[in-house]
């Protein structure tokens, strides 16, 4: 205690600051950094979860490089990203832009759009899975069949399955993005619009010259957020294809699901850890690129 008493006020402040910081620092090192480091270590080892770990060097990484499933999964992951992010961005902007102008039942409609975001992804995926089933139980196909149109294979198809899985994932994220967009729209000063109206500018010019440029920070935030979400997509895919996870023929399998499969049905922890490290690097790269764009502002 004597030691503490002899400190200057400045030093005492530092002691207190570190005292409060100790908890999160401890938390991060035990819960985040230690497992991360351990995962990187495991990626250089062979481990079936039961036996001892043995050193494998770069074997897991060379196996990954030569694994055709990995490249298929890698492509799928980016298809989720490249389809999901722009589509959800455009839809949520259009809805937010028009909802912002609407007065009639504004709160109710906003609630309706936000509702899917609050719903559990698992429950939602199973309901959509049921929608997509073939006749006689699937909702969509029953409608088609009652019109005399042959059914569409939504999930049991190598071409239709990925968009079918993506659709509810996009829908689920819309609510959040709409709220963010609406907040962004409200933050644009009204005086710009008044000035534009005095100048007699068209609605389209207002949209492209005022609204969208001033929404850039909002757009960048949503892009970063939803990109990370789509790169990590798992629950929708897993729950809609549980019997053949990521199937058919790996058509819907994202990287996270491959990691899960390798680790917890194949019990090949080393190989799964190597895939995790690759996912980590992808996420890091995508985030860095996007932060770079953010800074250009």
């Amino acid at each position: 205690m004597k030691f503490y008493r002899n400190l200057t006020i400045k030093q005492k402040q530092i002691v207190w600051a570190w005292g409060f910081l100790a908890l999160p620092v401890l938390f991060y090192s035990v819960i985040r950094f230690y497992p991360t480091g351990n995962a990187m270590l495991i990626s250089f080892q062979d481990w079936n979860l039961l036996g001892s770990r043995t050193w494998a060097g770069w074997d897991n990484y060379t196996k990954l490089w030569h694994d055709p499933v990995f490249w298929k999964v890698f492509a799928n992951t980016f298809i989720y990203l490249l389809l999901g992010t722009p589509i959800s961005l455009v839809i949520s902007f259009v809805i937010a832009y028009n909802l912002d102008k609407l007065r009639f039942m504004h709160g109710f409609l906003r609630m309706l759009y936000f509702l899917p975001f609050m719903t559990s992804a698992v429950a939602m995926a199973w309901v959509w899975r049921w929608f997509y089933q073939p006749v006689p139980i699937g909702l969509f196909n029953n409608v088609l069949a009652s019109l005399g149109i042959p059914q569409i294979e939504f999930l049991r198809s190598t071409t239709n399955a990925l968009p079918s899985v993506l659709a509810p994932a996009v829908w689920a994220g819309l609510g959040f993005q709409i709220i963010i967009f609406m907040a962004g729209l409200r933050a644009i000063p009204r005086s710009y619009y008044e000035a534009a109206r005095i100048d007699g500018v068209s609605t389209w010019t207002v949209l492209f010259e005022i609204t969208i440029p001033l929404l850039k920070p909002t757009i960048v935030f949503i892009v970063v957020f939803s990109s990370i979400g789509f790169l990590r997509i798992f629950d929708h895919v897993f729950n809609m294809t549980t019997q053949d996870p990521g199937g058919p023929l790996n058509a819907t399998k994202p990287l996270v699901l491959m990691i899960y499969d390798t680790a917890f049905t194949g019990f090949d922890m080393g190989y799964a850890a190597a895939q995790t490290v690759v996912l980590f690097l992808i996420l890091l790269l995508v985030s860095l690129i996007q932060l770079r764009i953010l800074r250009d502002r």
């Binding site: 073939p134 196909n141 069949a145 149109i149 059914q151």
Partner: peptide, 8 residues
């Protein structure tokens, strides 16, 4: 099979 040719 139903009218649209789907197995029921």
């Amino acid at each position: 099979v139903d009218g649209a040719g789907n197995i029921t």
